[in-house]
Nucleic acid binder design. Structure first.
Lengths: 330, 330
DNA sequence: TTGTAAGCGTTATCAA
DNA sequence: TTGATAACGCTTACAA
């Protein structure tokens, strides 16, 4: 591999001048700058970023830690962050935790060891607080998104969880549903706590009782959604607000089993506008969390040195699953 | 940040000994090894991987370059590769090309500049050959997957494209379809060429004519799939083999528009078992490419220094879209 | 405008 | 078994 020393030797100058020339430092004669550029081209020189980073004590890598890369929500966040970061000359090192706290700790250590410029993090569901993060990251800038711990310093990008859940539940109420349960997430996670709060607020604002017996906690995957929906049906519910998309998928499995034919049998609105929600039958009404924009916001928060909390609005998308006038399987 | 020099000073020994102790080098007294480990723990030492990499002239990062990270196929390949690589102590730097050759070139240069241990690459669709890769990567190990150029050196992991397309088409033929078109991809890509060949072989093996007028080239996204399917319907086709999943989605849009009610009106089998294919209505018969396994194989090929081509079988999954006995919207 | 020299933190070689 | 020294490739005061 060609180094700046090779270029320097070839031109009879010193490596420092070459370094300056390539870096666009103005304290170098136009003539030599051109000569250096030309020779670099000629020899196929490519900067050794590792050496450069070591010397400068910083790197142009941003670490992104997410629970699962293949979740559309997260891969879109990553896509958004990457698009902004690439333009700013950064690259992205991605780690999956598969919802394991241990894996999250390991990932953060790894990123710290690479001396990444910043870490964009959405916590594993079984992380109970942010203590591990503080300890590991030290002064490395941290931007949390979606699943955040408010006590950790640094920027946070969150969805408008409370407002979104409120909108979704209110939509169900206004559609005429009388007993609305919820597939709630884990109460260790701020995002799910807020969604539950929004659900509750909508009920109370409409003079409907909040009934904890039809709140199905820790229900975020297909299987648990299926089980919870069966219970909700037995409990006399006629609709559900789901804090996730995959749990809603499980609920639809339960609807099919019961032979429900349309939203007048049972209504559901899910959080997270995963691609499949618009394609399945019945198509699911959802809250679009704008994950790509969330990723862009997280990246920009880092680039601009922000430390505040940004709230990304959620947009209600009404489809078959909450539309009483539309038979699912007509 | 604590360095090995800090540890050395604290213990009154030299950095070299500390380095050896931490690296588990046997040429160090058990006693000092323990002392070093203890002190390292105490001072919260974490290795500076950047410095280590520079000195060793290698890194424990593997670059993965894919067209789009949010495509389920690719995010699953990445997941598979990551799981194997993490266990072996490697980390993963991910780059998206968004199907742009320029972005691919940029990504490869970046990875080279980081002196990554290897590159796992699936080409952008508008890459016509592998010349750019050879030039940029030099001696960096290259593992290509899915979309590969046979003339490039190094391991290749491909789907059983020809065989899979053959199976899918044969399934349509055996289901009684009489005029089967295909949503074909780009003929600059080996994978699509092979799928077309498999399609053709199945027709010819069954005494059916290969008719180039019902081969719809360059059809891999929803919009073009929709347009092509409309043409196929006009051309008197009663079934399609689609080289991708998203183009098949577009075809279903066309079926809906035409008011088709079931697979006896029109049949389709798609390549790529994206999650939505099993959830939509009609559910799509697909070829499962086993992307996770493909990623694992790519990672292992690197770790084991393989340079051969591995073929990952494709599995036919029969669902509503090719099942004549099952009405879609019953 | 350029060169000199030192150093980023680690590891490898050699000598002790 | 340990220490001294140099080097990986680059950047940056400081000096010339």
């Amino acid at each position: 591999m060609t180094t700046i020393t090779d270029i320097a030797k070839a031109l009879g100058i010193t490596p420092s001048t070459v370094s300056r020339a390539l870096a666009g430092n103005p304290r170098v004669k136009e003539e030599t700058r051109l000569a250096v550029k030309k020779k670099a081209e000629e020899l196929g020189y490519e900067q050794n970023v590792v050496a450069s980073n070591l010397r400068k004590g910083q790197s142009r890598i941003v670490g992104i830690v997410v629970p699962r890369i293949h979740r559309e929500f997260f891969s879109n966040v990553i896509g958004g962050a990457e698009s902004v970061l690439n333009k700013a000359g950064y690259n992205v090192l991605i780690c999956q935790t598969l919802e394991s706290l241990d894996a999250e700790i390991k990932a953060l250590k790894t990123l710290k060891n690479y001396r990444v410029a910043a870490v964009l993090l959405s916590h594993a569901i079984n992380a109970k607080n942010g203590n591990h993060v503080k300890e590991i990251l030290g002064s490395t800038p941290l931007i949390q998104f979606d699943r955040v711990f408010p006590d950790l310093p640094g920027a946070k990008i969150v969805g408008a969880n409370c407002e979104g859940a409120y909108k979704a539940t209110m939509h169900l109420i206004q559609s005429g549903y009388k007993r609305i349960g919820t597939l709630a997430g884990y109460m260790t996670s701020q995002a799910y706590v807020e969604r539950l709060a929004g659900y509750r607020m909508a009920l109370e604002a409409s003079g409907m009782p909040f009934d904890n017996s039809i709140v199905y906690y820790n229900t975020i995957v297909r299987e648990t959604g299926y089980e919870a929906a069966k219970k909700a049906i037995e409990a006399g519910c006629d609709a559900l607000y789901s804090c996730g998309a995959f749990s809603a998928l499980g609920a639809v499995d339960a609807f099919r089993e019961k032979g429900f034919k349309g939203a007048d049998d049972f209504g559901i609105v899910a959080t997270s506008n995963e691609g499949f929600t618009g394609l399945m039958s019945p198509s699911l009404s959802t809250l679009n969390q704008h994950p790509f924009e969330m990723g862009e916001a997280a990246a920009r928060a880092f680039l601009e040195g922000r430390t505040d909390t940004q709230v990304i609005p959620m947009e209600l998308i009404i489809r078959q699953s909450s539309n009483k006038n539309n038979k699912w399987l007509k």
